[in-house]
């Protein structure tokens, strides 16, 4: 069978589908001071996943927490990578208490594209990955 670390090189999704892959990628991102990109990506997935069985109040609190931690500060690594229109949309959802399971989808896509084009290829060339393999 193909060793997991070779699968990690197939696509970002293959990497993020494996706990050890996530751990190594996060260690790399931490070195580059952009681990928030990955945390935000998982927070968006988790938000969408939890919607069905969580109460509205809890979802609002969670949406606010994600917004405050990653989007509100315009100098944050995540906020800098998200388009202004996408940020306004999320801010409006939070302010108007309009909580939708898909409200972070566009922002997640933008961060994912950025990782696919930038940090993920760098990771595959990094010492941390090459040493692991």
């Amino acid at each position: 069978p193909t060793p997991p670390y070779l699968k990690w090189a197939e696509s970002l999704h293959s990497l993020l589908d494996d706990q050890d892959g996530i751990h190594l990628f996060r260690t790399f991102l931490k070195q580059e001071e952009c681990a928030d990109l990955l945390d935000f990506w998982f927070a968006c997935s988790g938000f969408r996943k939890q919607e069905a069985n969580e109460g509205n109040e809890k979802m609002l609190k969670l949406a606010k927490a994600i917004y405050k931690k990653y989007i509100l500060d315009n100098n944050g690594i995540v906020s800098r990578q998200i388009k202004p229109a996408t940020k306004s949309f999320i801010r409006d959802c939070v302010m108007k208490l309009h909580i939708d399971p898909a409200m972070f989808d566009q922002a997640q896509t933008e961060i994912q594209t950025m990782m696919e084009e930038n940090t993920y290829p760098l990771f595959l060339k990094s010492d941390i990955y090459l040493e692991y393999t």
Binding site: D17, F42, G46, K49, Q50, A65, K69
Partner: peptide, 21 residues
């Protein structure tokens, strides 16, 4: 009641794949 940070950590963890071992 969970703090916002606790909620966030739980949310991130819930989206990660579980160990297959």
């Amino acid at each position: 009641m969970d703090s916002e940070d606790d909620l966030l950590i739980k949310c991130i963890t819930s989206a990660m794949p579980q160990h297959k071992k």
